[in-house]
Structure formats: structure tokens, C-alpha cells
């Protein structure tokens, strides 16, 4: 009997551990639209269409396209020249720069000497069936944000104010701008749609507005 009670206790602890881990896991949860995705800072950067190979070599052209997936060859093309995606670390298409993340490329929305910020868009479709047999389909765009310190640093998931503060802890002004409650942050973004971008821009500007 005592043995069974121990097993029940251990089972309850396992379920509790599962719930704690699930609640404590890091979620990339900045909602769509919180950042400005066509940053004015990025617009002022150099223009053109080119690939940047892993060794830094630039391959210029007029048209860039890429494809990846389970049934597709992971490759990127500039005009008629083809490269493996793993050989190309990023590309510029007009005034937007994209960096490789896995076998895909994600958009840079803030560019600067100290920190870059990227966004990954994922189209998600979910279907559910009600008890009356009605099927409901819901589609939305999930946005995951990643910061990069320096031009070749790793992509770090950037999930919210606490990550912003940690990334820019050596800049009191950026930390102060990020250190708002959710309600205050919503208000700040409503007032200035570029507010979140501007935190990163302050950091890139030597911690000055």
C-alpha cells in the first residue's frame, strides 16, 4: 500500500514537472505588428541585389530566389547561378537584407554596428471541429524575432522585454525604454509604432537618442 502511494506521489511529481517545464519554457511571444518591419534605418543602407557567401564574397545580380524543404533541393539562385543554401550566409534584395537561419532566410529589420534584429514569419493554419460537426479554420502569421550582436554573431531568440534588457544591459537608456509593463508598452507602441525598433536604434547609436 505504501509502495503504491509512493508511485502515486512520483507520478504526481512527474505531471507537476511537466507543467512547470512547459510554463517555464521560453516562448518567442512578441506579437505581429509590435515592430516596424520596414525600418527606416534599413532603408538607408546600401541598395542592390546580391548574395553574400560564407567567406564574405558578394555575387551581384538582378534577381534572387531560393527554395528549401523536404522535397526540394536547398538552393539559392542569383540570376542563373545556383548555390547551396549552406554556402550563402545572407542576401540583399533591394533595401532589405536577409540572413540564413537553418535552411531559410529571415528578414533584417534593424541594422547597426552593435546589434541587428531579424524577424521570421511563419504562416500557421489550425483547424478544429465543434461538437456540431462544424469545422473552423484559423490562419495567422506567427512572428519570431532574433537579435544578433555584431555582423557574424549567432541569432539569439528575442522573446520580450526581459530579453531586450539582457541584450542591451550595458546601455541604461535602452534598458529604461524596454523596462515597461505590458500595458505601458502597448501604449508606447500605439503612440509611436517605431517604439520597439527605436530601443535597438538607441543601442546602435552609442546609447543616445
Amino acid at each position: 500500500m505504501q509502495h503504491k502511494s509512493l508511485k502515486n506521489t512520483l507520478s504526481a511529481c512527474t505531471v507537476a514537472l511537466f507543467i512547470l517545464l512547459a510554463l517555464g519554457s521560453k516562448v518567442n511571444r512578441i506579437h505581429y505588428g509590435a515592430f516596424q518591419y520596414s525600418s527606416s534605418k534599413e532603408d538607408r543602407a546600401e541598395d542592390g541585389h546580391y548574395l553574400v557567401k560564407n567567406d564574405g564574397e558578394k555575387i551581384h545580380g538582378d534577381k534572387i530566389s531560393w527554395k528549401s524543404g523536404l522535397l526540394a533541393k536547398d538552393q539559392i539562385k542569383v540570376d542563373e547561378q545556383k548555390f547551396k543554401i549552406t554556402e550563402v550566409k545572407g542576401y540583399r534584395s533591394g533595401n532589405t537584407y536577409y540572413i540564413r537561419k537553418g535552411n531559410e532566410y529571415i528578414k533584417r529589420i534593424v541594422h547597426g554596428p552593435r546589434i541587428n534584429l531579424y524577424v521570421e514569419f511563419t504562416e500557421v493554419t489550425t483547424t478544429s471541429t465543434t461538437n456540431t460537426g462544424f469545422t473552423r479554420t484559423r490562419s495567422y502569421t506567427r512572428t519570431d524575432h532574433y537579435a544578433q550582436k555584431g555582423e557574424d554573431g549567432p541569432l539569439l531568440p528575442c522573446a520580450g522585454q526581459s530579453d531586450f534588457k539582457k541584450l542591451m544591459e550595458d546601455c541604461p537608456l535602452a534598458v529604461e525604454m524596454a523596462d515597461l509593463s505590458n500595458k505601458q508598452m502597448r501604449k508606447a507602441i500605439k503612440k509611436n509604432p517605431n517604439y520597439l525598433n527605436s530601443i535597438f536604434e538607441v543601442y546602435n547609436n552609442g546609447c543616445k537618442e
Binding site: 528549401s68 524543404g69 523536404l70 549552406t86 537561419k101 537553418g102 535552411n103 531559410e104 511563419t122
Partner: peptide
């Protein structure tokens, strides 16, 4: 694993 399919990851 950075270079695996997003579905697997």
C-alpha cells in the same frame, strides 16, 4: 541543430 528542417526542429 541549426541546419535541420524547421518542421523537425
Amino acid at each position: 541543430a541549426a541546419d535541420v528542417s524547421p518542421f523537425i526542429k
